[in-house]
Computed example of a mutant assay.
Amino acid sequence: MTRIGYAAGAFDLFHVGHLNLLRHAKENCDVLIAGVVSDEMLRAVKGIRSVVPTAERAEIVRSIRYVDDVHVETVPDKLDVWREVGFTHFFKGDDWRGTEKGLRLEREFGAVGVEVVYFPYTAHTSSTALRRALDALAPALPVAR
């Protein structure tokens, strides 16, 4: 049976943690589809505005050698995404393991035969940390003309 993997994220301010997730995911499936959360979903679900627009993030992720295809997420429910994409394995950082969200994801995906696989979360870098650093630098950065 072909293992179709799905690794989702904003992939905004692309960093080594994103690359690690995609590399580990590809090592554990035959076909890797990367889910890029749309600008609209980022605002609706996380309350954040992306720095890099959806189309550009999708193009960056599509260019990563580990990624076979990209799916832009426009719905908040991962089961709805599964219905659209049809993956057999869902990959997530292990910061979700044992959390309420992670356990719910495992139950919901388990009911439809999808295995949730966790990979080590890259704790030393994150988009949130990069956003904070950029915000701190913002007053010192020159204004583009």
Rank of each mutant, 00 (worst) to 15 (best):
M1N: 15
M1E: 15
M1A: 15
T2H: 12
T2S: 14
I4V: 15
A7K: 02
G9T: 10
G9A: 14
A10T: 15
D12V: 13
V16C: 05
L21D: 07
L22R: 04
R23F: 12
H24G: 04
C29Q: 10
C29Y: 05
L32D: 03
A34T: 05
A34S: 05
G35T: 00
S38Q: 04
S38N: 01
S38W: 03
D39N: 12
E40L: 01
V45C: 08
G47D: 05
R49Y: 13
V51T: 04
V51S: 01
V52I: 14
P53V: 02
A55E: 14
E56H: 14
R57V: 01
A58K: 02
I60S: 00
V61D: 04
V61G: 02
R62F: 11
R62Q: 08
Y66P: 03
D68E: 07
D69R: 09
E73N: 03
T74I: 02
V75I: 08
V75Y: 03
W82A: 10
E84P: 11
E84G: 09
V85T: 02
T88R: 01
K92V: 14
G93I: 11
D95C: 06
D95S: 07
W96K: 05
R97T: 05
G98D: 14
F109V: 10
F109S: 02
A111G: 15
V112G: 07
Y118Q: 09
Y118G: 01
Y121G: 03
A123Q: 15
S126L: 07
S126Q: 07
T128N: 09
A129V: 08
R131H: 01
R132P: 02
A133S: 13
A133V: 12
L134D: 08
L137I: 14
L137E: 13
L137G: 08
A138H: 04
A138R: 13
A140F: 14
L141G: 01
L141S: 02
V143A: 10
R145I: 05
